[in-house]
């Protein structure tokens, strides 16, 4: 069994964490400017998990979340997934739209469009960091949105990884606002072949 992700050294994981750190910092700044609130982020976690355990990171496979999904194109293709608990998605959209009280439990077309745009901006901010470190031109696809169970949404990326192995490399960051507000998880999941390309470009290829 020669699964690429299981052979990563401490140094390589640290390097990926640093890329994630700068990327998440950019993304947090962008998000903070959009909603005009202070956003805290945790130092990204880089972990290698069995595929089935990835949904537990966001509270279990039946947790209700909104997910914005983008593909990354360029020399190191991959996927980006921004997951928010449903309440956080409502808060984010309502803050952005200047709506004090939420009346319905759904997102209308305008709300969905706003969430997609937020996903787009975050992904762009994150990819800027990755491009900076790797000197690659990395471009995001048009974003797609889904509101559903975390397991169902994550299955989209896990299935892609499942074709290559049984583990996922997850670069994960958590965002929180000072008060009640937003909590979110940002996942960068390189396509299996891309990992080596990224590591070589940032100079930690074994």
């Amino acid at each position: 069994m020669s699964e690429e992700v299981l052979k990563l050294s401490e140094l390589q994981l640290d390097a990926l964490k640093e890329v994630g750190n700068v990327g998440a910092g950019n993304a947090a700044t962008a998000l903070s400017q959009i909603i005009n609130r202070k956003i805290d982020m945790t130092v990204p976690k880089v972990c290698i998990l069995p595929l089935g355990e990835v949904p537990d990171v966001v509270g279990g496979p039946d947790t209700m979340v909104a997910g914005v999904y983008l593909r990354v194109f360029g020399p190191a293709p991959g996927s980006i997934l921004f997951l928010l608990p449903r309440e956080s998605a409502f808060y984010l959209v309502d803050t952005l739209m200047g709506r004090p009280d939420r009346e319905s439990n759904t997102l209308d077309e305008m709300d969905q469009s706003a969430l997609l745009e937020i996903g787009n901006i975050l992904a762009g901010a994150y990819l800027n960091s990755l491009s900076y470190f790797t000197k690659f031109t990395l471009l995001p696809s048009i974003p797609a949105l889904a509101m559903d169970m975390a397991g169902a949404i994550l299955s989209v990326i896990l299935i892609q990884l499942g074709q290559m192995g049984d583990h996922a490399l997850v670069i994960e960051t958590e965002f929180t606002t000072e008060a009640d507000g937003v909590k979110g998880h940002f996942f960068l999941i390189p396509d299996p072949g891309s990992l080596g390309t990224i590591l070589a470009a940032i100079g930690v290829k074994v």
């Binding site: 949904p55 279990g60 496979p61 039946d62 559903d148 169970m149 975390a150 397991g151 169902a152 949404i153 994550l154 299955s155 989209v156 299935i159």
Partner: peptide
């Protein structure tokens, strides 16, 4: 009972 949570494309 056997249960599986959150099936998407699976």
């Amino acid at each position: 009972s056997l249960i599986s949570y959150g099936l998407g494309s699976c």
